[in-house]
Amino acid sequence: MSRRASGFRAWVFQRITAVYLGLYFLFLAWYVLFSAPTSYVEWREWVANPVINLSLLFFAFSLLLHAWVGTRDIIIDYIKPLMIRVTMLVFLAIGLMGSGLWTAKYLFLTITSV
């Protein structure tokens, strides 16, 4: 894919994920403010609900994609030396993927183990 097309794809991804993140964030804020879990069992049961579990996983995925596109833009704009730029992008990618895998692991464990 050409550079222009991949830039356009990132632009579209950024906006689609933004809409989902915005709406889901309002839902999460509502949950934390008005029905925050008071016990481990309650918290775990909420996360183990299939709809919640899947939508949380999608939230995490959208967040990482959104964070990658946005931070990549910032790094490309301000960090000019190529080696430093690439190093920062690599650390960013590792950090985001690590966070994503960690989150996915616990979301998955919550529905599989009792």
């Binding site: 918290w43 990482l64 964070a67 985001l96 966070s99 692991k105």
Partner: peptide, 19 residues
């Protein structure tokens, strides 16, 4: 946005240990 990105590993960690 940059601040929120920095918070991602932190929240992932908290989510993990709380579950």
């Amino acid at each position: 946005g940059a601040l929120l990105v920095l918070a991602i590993p932190y929240f992932a960690y908290i989510l993990g240990i709380s579950l």
